[in-house]
Nucleic acid binder design. Structure first.
Lengths: 230, 230
DNA sequence: TTGCAATTCAAACAGTCGTATGAAACTATC
DNA sequence: GATAGTTTCATACGACTGTTTGAATTGCAA
């Protein structure tokens, strides 16, 4: 089947061009020129431009989510069904950050594409992202097991802030480099992951809703919640 | 001068439509229809579509930045030239969050416009945002005065994470509401500001680069750094 | 080899977009 | 009230967009 070659060529060309120039100014004609295929091939193989973008994003997104769940599962098995909170958060933000940052990923088309997808948020991608809620609920469930005493709202805020730091770092990495004049090392991905996880754990273990009084913490398995370096 | 009326009508109509439908699918023809002016008026008064968008964003952005600096200045004067870290962060994220969240701001066109600008990131807006570095440096300077013992890199990361949480909350507020099934109250803006500030302060006071050992904290004016509720 | 389906291709379609133009209407000054 | 400058207007331009079409080509099975 020669059609697979055309399909793959389109996917590769589209991902490369979107990664380099963004969704805003890449036309189907640009893509087919890069892929050396006919203009009509895109609609023939994908139906529409949006479906092409969706397929690109779904592929990469599923890979990240799978990696997340694998890491979460491994952590839960290691902990006998209950993973410590830092491991859960590590599984949440690790794959995303590792996939988009780091010197080896610098030239990766897939990484640059996902960064674009994180910045520009075009309709077909937005639609897919909105279905990610179910995926995140699995992490909320794991967090609930790790911190049974915690209010659900606090768990949601903790997860929300963890994703905030991860995505903002990916999205604004150039600005952070410029602002800090290189003092923030965006290439040391492991250190970034650790930093994001550490802050998230702090938010979850010490951060009560400021309006409330801090409750007794005896219900929480504190020893396991605190990272050794905090 | 009747020209001011046309100009204002265009600005108001554009802000409303962009706020409601995003930059992607609002054309000049939509704008002039909403404003009840002629199509050519946009290019006559603003030069181009991009310059219209830029003017809209610059106006709102300057207002926020001014508010930030006023709050920072007030905090520094109150502290005799050195504001506590939580007040600095409060001045950084407070105006942004207050401007975009909250029940009273729900119907505000300006707020919804800024949310759009935060989500879609169209070229003319991106250009303006890249000039914001100087503005942020003033906050870094204030943070350096508040925490003289801290590594600059840690300060940059702290500011970065504070902005991450604020912007991500604005940008993904619908998803957070959906994910938490309403358990996260996006209408209590003060509580959100306090929460973001609290986590940011924790990141700055306790968060060392995980690879390093935590240094002695004696150099830091701890008593003033820690919020009463932490 | 014949026949049929899958794939490729050049070309055109039907819009939409931001912008430009030149005349008309208005405004203010003298 | 004539004049000069500003602002509005209808209209068209030129280019670009995603998509469709129908014929040509290819690949594979009988």
């Amino acid at each position: 089947m020669s059609s697979d070659r055309t399909r793959s060529a389109i996917l590769a060309a589209a991902e490369k061009l979107y990664a380099d120039r963004g969704f805003g100014d890449v036309t189907l004609r640009d893509i087919v020129a890069e892929a050396n295929v006919n203009l009509a091939a895109v609609n023939y193989h994908f139906g529409s431009k949006d479906e092409l973008i969706a397929e690109l994003f779904v592929t990469r997104s599923l890979a990240t989510n799978r990696e997340r769940l694998n890491e979460l599962k491994a952590a839960e098995e290691k902990g006998g069904g209950r993973a410590p909170i830092d491991a859960i958060l590590h599984a949440l933000v690790g794959p995303t950050l590792r996939g988009c940052l780091g010197p080896d990923r610098e030239g990766s088309t897939a990484a640059r594409f996902m960064i674009r997808a994180s910045i520009e948020s075009v309709p077909p991608i937005r639609r897919i992202k909105n279905r990610e809620v179910d995926h995140l609920r699995k992490f909320i469930a794991a967090m609930r097991r790790a911190m049974p005493g915690r209010d659900d709202a606090d768990l949601y805020w903790g997860l929300h802030f963890a994703l905030a730091m991860a995505h903002h770092t990916i999205r604004e990495r150039e600005r952070l480099t410029k602002l800090s004049e290189g003092q923030c090392d965006l290439n040391d991905v492991d250190a970034i992951v650790d930093r994001v996880v550490a802050v998230s754990v702090m938010a979850l273990t010490a951060g009560e809703t400021p309006a409330k009084k801090a409750p007794a913490r005896s219900a929480m398995p504190q020893g396991r919640l605190t990272r050794q370096d905090l």
